[in-house]
Amino acid sequence: MTEGNFVDYVKMFVSSGNGGKGSSHLHREKFITKGGPDGGDGGRGGHVILRGNSNLWTLLHLKFKKHIRAGHGGHGAKSRSFGSDGTDEYVDVPLGTVVRDSETNDIIFEITEEGEEKVIAQGGKGGLGNWHFRSSTNQTPRYAQPGMPLEEKHITLELKILADVGLVGFPNAGKSTLLSVMTSAKPKIADYEFTTLKPNLGIVEYRDFQTFVMADIPGIIEGAAEGKGLGHYFLRHIERNSILLFLIPADAEDIRKQYDILLDELRRYNPEMLDKDRIVAISKSDMLDDELKAELKEELDNELPVPYLFISSIAQQGIMELKDTLWKMLNN
């Protein structure tokens, strides 16, 4: 999936259908000039329904579909004929989609399961025909109910990626390169910060045709939790990952300090992120000789509170070991 095709934020207008009005018809036929009421009910207005679809990974299909309108209910007719229900409009969204009210920014609901359906705009109820209002004292009611009006909303759809492993690191730490090596994804790779502006997803192929999903999240900077840099735009994507893979380059001045800064940004954004499984990968380790690696290992054994391993995406070092470790963590 190319970066331009990854759409994770869409605003749209949804409108349900009006309910049909009930009929106030009085029965008439040959030799019956003054029959009783026989007006039918109006049909229900169509709903706008959001539906979870596990085959979708992005909101791209909704990027240019800004208005969704359901059908209106049909009006009641004579002989107690009911009006037809309005056509429901189904909007398929990827799993992990958060639906917000655009005006208040409040979360309305989330779609997290395949086939899950939630009504975002309720169709108007159809009006009752005059058949319902007959009585011993009012045998020919000449009135019926109008249909209930439609419901309109401005909503915002936000996608939080549902991935097994999320890559966390500072800009230019080598996250996109690692994703391109471990999966068939083709993220943009360059030697400058913020090459990745939108998350990239890739399927990691493991032994015996087993797979898991890895997400490359745009680089975190200090202050991201307060919205600095790309801020909340990408931090929300880390919320749904099962495992956080911290990627820190071997040439970093202080590996423990970088890890603490990254962890603190996640904590300030959402403290629940600290409950996730974490592992550190020391990238670009092909720059280290055996002596330097031994020194660094001794230092990290005393400082890092989580498991770590040395990898090099370019030299293909430690990649299979990383896959094995991640697979064990996912299945434990």
Rank of each mutant, 00 (worst) to 15 (best):
E253T: 08
G223T: 15
D260L: 11
Y259H: 01
R268S: 07
G231W: 15
G229K: 08
R278W: 00
E239T: 15
H237V: 13
I255K: 03
Q210Y: 15
Y233M: 01
H232L: 14
Q210T: 00
Y259T: 00
R256C: 03
I220Y: 06
K198Q: 11
L274S: 15
K228E: 13
T196P: 00
F246Q: 00
F212H: 09
S242P: 05
E265S: 06
M214Y: 05
F212Y: 13
L197G: 04
L197N: 10
R240F: 03
E222P: 02
H232T: 03
I221C: 08
Y269F: 13
Y259E: 01
L197Q: 11
Y233C: 00
E265D: 06
D275F: 09
E272P: 02
Y269W: 07
R240S: 06
I220G: 01
D208W: 13
P218W: 15
R236G: 07
D264T: 15
F209G: 00
I243Q: 00
P218R: 12
V204I: 04
L230C: 14
F212W: 09
G202K: 03
I243M: 05
L245N: 03
L235F: 07
E193S: 05
L197S: 06
G229T: 05
E226S: 07
I248P: 08
D254C: 09
L244P: 01
I220L: 06
D260A: 04
L263R: 14
G219P: 07
P271D: 12
I248D: 01
H237D: 12
G219T: 10
E272F: 13
P249D: 15
I261T: 08
R278E: 01
R240E: 05
K228Y: 07
N200R: 08
E193L: 02
F212S: 04
I261H: 08
Y206D: 14
R256F: 15
M214V: 04
I255Y: 04
I261Y: 11
D260I: 13
